[in-house]
Amino acid sequence: MPIILCGDWNGSKRGHVYKFLRSQGFVSSYDTAHRYTDSDAHKWVSHRNHRGNICAVDFIWLLNPNRYRKLLKTSWSEAVFGMFRYLLRRASLTAEDAFAFLKTDNDGDHITFMGFCETLRQLNLTGHCNGLTTKEIKDLWTQADIDGNGLLDYKEFQQRIWNQTWSEQRDAEDGEAKGNQEQTVGFSVKNAVLFPPEVEKGMWPENYSLSDHARLTVVFSPIRMPCSQLVS
């Protein structure tokens, strides 16, 4: 069945929440109705914050059955590795430097589980109430350790942590999965409108004081479509 998520997502199209939901196959109903892409962030707004900045943060997300991509656990791992990668690159580390950083004090040409845990701690992803749990860390390690030998070599580091090809490869495989698929019911986006109308042109009217968020209304219509297979 189709899934609809509504609300103020407290982040623009450049944020991690937006990118994560897009990686799951969700689409912005408003963008779909107006044939906008992920790069059209400037074409509409829905919120003016307390600093006076305007941005698009309100979405009605749609995930149709033919867009299901991955099991949540797999996608969660990719999202965490994405944060991991972002923090390393924000420190201006090259791939070689990042690999050496994860090796910590290990003299070998590999990353140990202890070194992996220490790096997570230094990046502030563990060691506090909102950090990763012991089980989550072990799950991440299992995802990264492709050959299961208890060590991460440079190739595994590149494939699972540093590069994004893992996610892209899974998406490609998912897109190639065809054949006798079952039919199910999904939604098409018939129309989507923001109010006041000025926000649809990327502007916030100075005389609008009803709310600091624009109202988004979407009309859906049921359609028949094939049901995709989840990638485990």
Rank of each mutant, 00 (worst) to 15 (best):
L5R: 10
G7Q: 12
N10V: 04
N10S: 09
N10Y: 05
G11V: 11
K13H: 15
G15S: 15
H16K: 13
V17K: 10
K19N: 09
F20W: 13
S23E: 09
Q24L: 12
F26S: 03
S28T: 11
S28M: 09
S29A: 13
Y30R: 05
Y30E: 02
Y30D: 00
T32G: 00
A33K: 08
R35F: 09
Y36A: 03
Y36T: 04
D40G: 05
A41F: 14
H42S: 15
K43N: 07
K43Q: 12
W44E: 04
W44Y: 15
V45L: 04
V45Y: 03
V45E: 04
H47Q: 14
R48W: 03
R48P: 02
H50D: 09
R51W: 15
G52Y: 03
C55G: 05
C55V: 02
A56Y: 02
F59M: 03
F59Q: 01
I60S: 09
W61L: 06
L63F: 02
N64K: 00
N66D: 02
N66V: 01
K73F: 12
S75D: 13
S75W: 07
F81Y: 15
F81L: 14
F81G: 01
G82K: 11
M83R: 14
M83V: 13
R85T: 12
R85E: 09
L87S: 07
L88P: 08
L88W: 07
R90P: 10
L93D: 05
A95E: 15
A95P: 08
A100Y: 11
F101H: 11
F101W: 08
K103V: 01
K103D: 03
K103H: 06
T104Q: 12
T104G: 06
I111L: 05
M114W: 08
G115E: 02
T119M: 03
L120S: 03
Q122D: 08
L123E: 08
N130H: 14
T134D: 12
T134E: 12
K135Y: 08
I137Y: 11
D139Y: 15
L140E: 10
Q143R: 15
D145N: 12
N149P: 08
G150H: 07
L151H: 13
L152V: 09
Y154C: 04
E156Q: 15
F157V: 11
Q159C: 11
W162G: 10
N163F: 13
N163H: 15
T165Q: 15
W166P: 07
W166T: 04
Q169P: 03
Q169L: 12
A172F: 14
E173I: 05
D174Y: 14
G175A: 07
E176A: 10
N180S: 07
Q181S: 09
T184Q: 01
S188T: 01
K190R: 12
A192P: 00
V193T: 10
V193Q: 01
V193S: 02
F195M: 06
V199M: 06
K201C: 08
G202C: 07
W204N: 03
E206M: 07
E206R: 15
S211K: 14
D212F: 03
H213N: 09
H213A: 05
A214F: 04
A214S: 06
R215K: 14
R215W: 11
R215F: 12
T217L: 08
V218P: 00
V219R: 01
P222D: 00
I223W: 01
M225Y: 00
C227K: 13
S228W: 01
S228T: 04
